[in-house]
């Protein structure tokens, strides 16, 4: 008998929760704000679903009810991706060590 692919995805999900648990505990508290902004950016990988949704329309009608939601989701997720990664980069660039170049 074959295993339902859902079980495989569930396994990945559960294991990822554990990875997340250990990785996030090792994040230094002073970087908790960048942690939030970067998790924000990466959770916008939901854009993958938005792209599939947007391109689901056929070639003579790019915009239909279903694909419009996809296009809107692309823009929303893109705000997050660019905004999230860039603001994280901006923050991380500010963390400096003591007496450099002094």
């Amino acid at each position: 008998m074959e295993i339902d692919p859902f079980i495989f995805r569930l396994s990945i999900f559960i294991l990822s929760i554990f990875i997340g648990y250990y990785v996030v505990w090792s994040v230094t508290p002073s970087l908790h704000t960048p942690l939030m902004s970067v998790t924000n950016a990466i959770s916008s990988v939901i854009i993958v679903g938005a792209i599939i949704a947007a391109l689901a329309g056929n070639s003579d009608s790019v915009f239909n009810t279903s694909s419009i939601f996809g296009f809107l989701a692309i823009s929303l997720a893109a705000i997050n991706i660019f905004g999230g990664f860039l603001v994280t980069q901006r923050m991380l660039a500010m963390y400096k060590k003591k007496k450099k170049g002094k």
Partner: peptide, 14 residues
């Protein structure tokens, strides 16, 4: 989609 599942779990636990 594996990328989404992994990311969702990471962000959720974070």
């Amino acid at each position: 989609n594996t990328a989404l599942i992994i990311t969702g779990a990471l962000v959720g636990s974070s």
